[in-house]
């Protein structure tokens, strides 16, 4: 039975994985030392490690976003929540204990996510509109917390979260793996995955089957907020400062892109956490590649745009149909 399961995931994850591999190989041509990993002071260094390390905030946010998109939703406030949580941690740390700062930063994320979930599930406001509020207000709140300045943080434990090494690997990687495993656990060891995929695919039938969609929606948005907060801590810890204006700017777009590349449809239903991770890694590799080729880094945006359209067209049934029809017509004419 497991074989079927494997086969199935493999199919969905195949294309993003191939694309990722292709880009990695491409990098090898540009930079022959791309795959080299050095060991300095028991720490691993190298381009691959670097890409992995840098992509962690995006990976975590994308994982949260995957759940939201699985229920035909969207959360465009993740960037703002990321900024708020970083700012909160920084502000509290100025006078208080670091652990308190971490806990409060996470709680802030949960509260933001819960707020979004409340608007979507109870008030039945369209997800995009509901999260738009926090997107707009969020940056303002973050700036309010930081007082409009970039707060710098001077704490060893905190900077360890962003830059430290554990068993040779950068610490953020462990956080990323932990979040990923937690979500896998939720999907495979509780009924959340099943319920979420059901309501994302067919809301009416799910209600007939006794699922209570509101609770699941609330849960999913809360998790998404929490993920954004975790990413916020990592981002701010990485540079030891909280920038309310620029931290996580546009990360919501990258996250949506990562989810879609990973094979989860914007129309909800099945979701693929592994695919999302690969999608996020792909985006990071893409940026890194373009930087290392040395051409204008802004072309990343153009490439992203084209990739999004292409992926969505592939997912669009009417596109495939008209494509197929085109082929048919040609045959009938000849």
């Amino acid at each position: 039975m497991k074989q079927y399961l494997l086969k199935f995931t493999r199919q969905k994850i195949f294309w993003p994985l191939t694309a990722l591999a292709l880009f990695l190989v491409l990098n090898l041509f540009i930079d022959p030392g791309f795959f080299e990993i050095e060991i300095k002071n028991n720490h691993l260094f190298g381009s691959l490690i670097d890409i992995l390390n840098r992509s962690i905030p995006l990976v975590i946010i994308s994982i949260g976003m995957t759940l939201v998109i699985a229920k035909e939703g969207i959360d465009i406030s993740v960037g703002s929540v990321l900024a708020i949580s970083g700012a909160t941690a920084a502000a509290i740390m100025e006078h208080q204990n670091i652990w308190l700062a971490l806990i409060v930063a996470l709680i802030v994320g949960i509260v933001c996510g819960f707020w979004n979930g409340l608007l979507v599930s109870v008030f039945e406001i369209q997800p995009m509109v509901a999260t738009l509020i926090l997107l707009v207000v969020g940056r303002g709140i973050a700036q309010l917390i930081t007082g409009g300045q970039i707060l710098t943080m001077d704490n060893e434990i905190y900077s360890f979260i962003g830059t430290g090494f554990l068993f040779g690997f950068p610490f953020p990687i462990y956080i990323g793996i932990f979040v990923f495993l937690m979500m896998i656990f939720l999907k495979k060891r509780t009924a959340m995955g099943l319920f979420l995929e059901s309501i994302g695919n067919n809301m009416t039938a799910s209600k007939f089957a006794g699922i209570q969609p509101k609770k699941i929606i609330l849960l999913v948005y809360t998790i998404c907020g929490l993920c954004a907060a975790i990413a916020g801590i990592i981002v701010s810890a990485n540079v030891s400062s909280a920038d309310a204006n620029n931290a996580g700017l546009w990360i919501e777009l990258d996250a949506i892109l990562a989810v879609v590349i990973g094979g989860t449809s914007m129309r909800g239903g099945r979701y693929f956490l592994g695919g999302t991770v690969v999608g996020a890694l792909f985006i990071q590799t893409l940026s890194t590649t373009i930087y290392s080729i040395g051409i204008n880094p802004q072309i990343v945006m153009v490439v992203k745009a084209l990739v999004v359209i292409l992926v969505c067209l592939m997912q669009s049934e009417s596109f495939r149909r008209s494509f197929a029809n085109m082929g048919k017509k040609k045959v009938s004419y000849t």
Binding site: N202, A205, A209, R270
Partner: peptide, 22 residues
């Protein structure tokens, strides 16, 4: 519309009711 959930497998469709009960 009210019965099947197309994306899911037969196994998942079968246990869905029992799972919501649990």
């Amino acid at each position: 519309v009210e019965g099947i959930i197309n994306d899911l497998t037969i196994r998942e469709n079968i246990i869905l009711g029992l799972q919501t009960k649990k």
